[in-house]
Design a protein around this nucleic acid. Sequence first.
DNA 1: GCAATAGTGTCTTTTAGACATTATGTG
DNA 2: CACATAATGTCTAAAAGACACTATTGC
Lengths: 270, 270
Amino acid sequence: MQKKISEKEFLENYRVNDYERPSVAADIVIFTILDKESDNYRKLGTKSLSILLVRRGGYPFLGEWALPGGFVKPDETVGQAATRELKEETNLENIYLEQLYTFSTPNRDPRAWIMSSSHLALLNSDNLQVQSGDDAADAQWFTMEYSCEENLYKISFSNADTTLSTVVKLDIFNPEESQVIENTGLAFDHAKIVAYALERVRNKLEYSQLAFNLVPEKFTLTELQNVYEVILNETLFKAAFRRKIAPYIEETAEYQEGFGHRPSKLFVRR
Amino acid sequence: MQKKISEKEFLENYRVNDYERPSVAADIVIFTILDKESDNYRKLGTKSLSILLVRRGGYPFLGEWALPGGFVKPDETVGQAATRELKEETNLENIYLEQLYTFSTPNRDPRAWIMSSSHLALLNSDNLQVQSGDDAADAQWFTMEYSCEENLYKISFSNADTTLSTVVKLDIFNPEESQVIENTGLAFDHAKIVAYALERVRNKLEYSQLAFNLVPEKFTLTELQNVYEVILNETLFKAAFRRKIAPYIEETAEYQEGFGHRPSKLFVRR
DNA sequence: GCAATAGTGTCTTTTAGACATTATGTG
DNA sequence: CACATAATGTCTAAAAGACACTATTGC
């Protein structure tokens, strides 16, 4: 039957409505390393992994906190939608962005059949100087603390006035099958998405150069080491760390001065 | 405004048609290791990485070869859709399946706005004894050969009567932006998807236990080493290989006999 | 000078690379 | 018994782990 008509005719007669279609949203897990400045002029600040969340101003999950995101339009890819949302939230462009996973459990959104193509974005402290975008009325940075044993992620999120917490038994092969054991304040299935993003970052840190996206263009080796320590939740040996990253960095002639200790050399990514 | 109505009212009045929606398909890159038996009773067969492709019986891309797949239904996840398609194609269940990437370039399908949530499935030679499913009329195994230098993948696919080939400059951070430099016989953007699947398998082989999905439940260490060699496109040192995988295997009391050489012990995954 | 961090040296332990050697079933 | 593969031993080289030590700065 089909062979009797031309491809042109076929395409003109194609009826997209023969199949039910989902809405597709692009959601973004935006991580950065925030620095809590020290009161002691000698000491360095303490760093912490942080995430940008937006307060929901409408139903469903009114008043809870969600990942930034929005619906994908017909003239863009899911990645372009995420880039657009990122710009609207943070006013930033040229940010590291990678696709994470497409969450598609039929009832994950009470409104309708809505899939979430989730993304991971990493900002460095240079980026944070920039003010937030138009859509960011209720966007806030939360510092994260977590523990993870046998894929049981216990995560807490804190800002000046709020603390959220969640416990997720992550299924690393099939993140949608993860069990949300406890969850206070995170909307939708976003606890699963955040846990999976954290898992991804922890893993990729070890076999890729992801960490450079979380430090400024010029950075000290201690800053870079802090990124690893804060994400991996462990302290590393300085000498071993420097040996390991040596192939990926290049020293500059500049130094970071102004603290009560020996100035540190600034490096750039090779 | 929204605060004046209840969540129940909001959900009842939610109009999904306010936004345009794409169709979403689940496509599957199904890899296995095929064994070409040797004519010499002493010698072992030569293994090769292979992929299952289906010949398109309708427009668009009539007569070309495509990944198995189909549209996602409203009561299933993209993963469940992939599992269902896999069953229809191969008649197999409980197969290793992981989500690969969601391809969503607006014009990637000439019919309409159709995203592809692509998946990776791995079969072992036990699985291959099973006959193919109903939908598999034109499904065929192609053995693959490839080279890769600086993410330039040159891949050829061969079966008894056909050879396809493609050259893809893979963008590993953003696979949709990969350049298809040459492509004979693969439909849609499936060349990009296959190249990305191959990249994923090559990488994951090194830091995960993916390889065990490509050997039978009981396997010889040479079989397992062959999986690595065929996928990584390089020969490995036997002693070093065995040291490295020792923590992940457990020996059985059984041996594989019947060849003109010393029998090899059978192992299982730990 | 002291507190705090920067940067390096070095010893030990572990892991990986490269062969070489011994073992064994089947025609 | 010869062929082809199985399995292991061993020497060397490289990488990782664990500390200790020296170098600088601002107050």
